[in-house]
Amino acid sequence: MSNTTGSATWLRRLLIGTGVTLSVLLLLTPLLLIFIAAFASGVGGIISNLQDADMLHAIGLTLLVAGLTVPINLIFGTLIAWCVTRFTFPGRRLLLTLIDIPFAVSPVVAGLLYLLLYGSNGPFATWLDAADLQLMFAWPGLVMVTVFVSCPFVVKELVPLMSTLGTEQEEAAVLLGASGWQVFWQITFPNIRWALLYGVILTNARAVGEFGAVSVVSGTIRGQTNTLPLHIELLQQDYNTTGAFIAAALLTLMAIATLVVKAVLQWRMHR
């Protein structure tokens, strides 16, 4: 930019140097440490740790939770975004504020909210017992809190985009005789698909990585209600640091994949 004078160049170098150094120390070094620590006992150690039944179960449960959470939040997130950007009605702003609540609430509090409501002391306890439904300390509870903590992502990606897009294309389609489904699938969806996918990968990253909320409603029962992030804590408490880092490395790979997809999507959306 304006590196016309000596002092400007000097300032520029100082700022870039400080920024890069801090970022490397704070963000990149932890990333390196994870993989180095995961390889501490060699490839054999990784294989044996990954073959551990509890680890496999944790991976499976994590995938289940994310696999259920993502479609739920995708569908409802899209409906909410459609509702608040395509119509004006009293309470529209309130709706937008309410959907922000999960991001403001501490994950532990989020878990607690569900535990109080659906737990054995909650108002639905008798009813749930009678129906022989165990929600808390079981996988449905994990899905419920994960839906809660990750529901704003899709909405937050779609609302600004759909407001900017406006409604003219959709109005034109309605005028030309398109049905509701046709308007959404043929007109709206092609315009928002990358943002939608972006919302999905963010939802997925959070769903896979959630710790606080699930630790409240999970009870951390090995081989039953233990997700991968919770398993890291267990392994560390067992002094199996390498095992903990192997689990962490798996999650880190997911995080890196998320960042790559995100970068690609942002590039596509701005094109």
Partner: peptide
Amino acid sequence: HVAERGVGFVFQHYALFKH
């Protein structure tokens, strides 16, 4: 309903389906 009125409408910013 709009679709049954038999009107053609042209928008200021064209509103062409860009995809």
